[in-house]
């Protein structure tokens, strides 16, 4: 694939907004001045919109050639409100607001409306690989000549969805988390010393440790990078992390404690951490993000500096 640069990386976790890894104060009322728009936004919409607007700050709307968002479960609170209203009101007299706000593309749509961005606008909902699909699309848009792409990932947790996931046995090992990330992506031009995505690969279904190792070897080989020259960011389990460490002897392994925070677009948070570290450390090295979402959705994202 043609490399793409991460020019800006914004993250909202709780009330803390970071830009390129540094905390920045923000006032949502200033970001969204229209009170009637604000009052209709649920928590996830506010999170995503704040993060996206901050990422697009300073850019003229006509220079943003696309907004690509990813979400595993979408705007859950509004979806729950809408479904509850279907039951309570016997499928009649349904409130329009939760219906409008519950659609997956609400966040991408709101950012476009607020900033007057009339370009390509798509949301990917591909379970644990939603963010990876959005990232691949962003890379393809850049390869086709688009300049700036606003790439985001948002997921929220609500008490009832946590309860359902627990009852389904999905969270036996995990605590659920949430977050919003946005990235400003453009074509990689050498000499800028910004983090760049060099390659992405995805797979679904359970993989053995040997298959994961083989896959990592494959992606590094095709990019001409030695596994011992990598900094690895991963949420994989202890067994796989130990095998990676023993087999490849990488520069470092940053283990995200998946047991404390799991959500479908968590890999966007890994990308933010890796990109922010690369920007702050100002040294040339490669990063491999190894995402092992619930041992079912896997991705490898290779980063370098350009």
């Amino acid at each position: 694939m043609q490399p793409i640069t991460i020019t800006k990386s914004c993250q909202l976790k709780g009330d803390v907004l970071t830009v390129d890894g540094c905390e920045e104060p923000f006032d949502f009322k200033e970001l969204v001045a229209d009170a009637s728009l604000r009052r209709r936004m649920s928590r996830i919409v506010k999170m995503g919109v704040a993060c996206g607007l901050k990422c697009a700050e300073g850019l003229a709307p006509e220079t943003i050639d696309g907004i690509i968002t990813a979400t595993g479960l979408g705007c859950l609170a509004d979806t729950e409100k809408f479904m509850e209203s279907i039951v309570v009101n016997n499928e009649r007299l349904l409130n329009p607001t939760p219906f409008i706000q519950s659609t997956f593309n609400t966040i991408g749509g709101q950012i476009a409306l607020l900033r007057g961005i009339h370009s390509y606008n798509v949301t990917y909902v591909h379970r644990g690989l939603s963010f990876e699909s959005a990232l691949i699309d962003a890379a393809m848009q850049i390869a086709e000549g688009r300049r700036n792409i606003l790439l985001g990932a948002v997921d929220e947790i609500t008490p009832s969805s946590a309860d359902i996931q627990r009852r389904l046995g999905m969270t036996r090992e995990y605590e659920l988390g949430e977050g919003a990330n946005f990235f400003l992506i453009n074509a990689a031009t050498p000499g800028r010393h910004r983090p760049a995505v060099l390659d992405i690969a995805t797979r679904s279904g359970r993989l053995t440790t040997d298959e994961m190792i083989e896959w990592i070897v494959e992606i590094t080989k095709r990019n001409g990078i030695k596994t011992s020259d990598l900094c690895i960011y991963t949420n994989c389990d202890d067994e796989l992390a130990k095998t990676i460490d023993d087999k490849f002897e990488p520069i470092s392994i940053t283990l995200f404690n998946y047991k404390n925070c799991e959500y479908p677009t968590l890999s966007a948070r890994f990308l933010d951490s890796a990109a922010s570290d690369m920007y702050i450390i100002r040294k040339d090295y490669n990063v491999l993000i190894v995402n092992d979402y619930q041992h079912i959705n896997h991705s490898l994202i290779l980063l370098g500096k350009m």
Binding site: A35, S36, R40, N95, P96, T97, I100
Partner: peptide, 10 residues
Amino acid sequence: LGLDSIDALE
């Protein structure tokens, strides 16, 4: 109050 058409439906 500055309400709009969606509010009218509500």
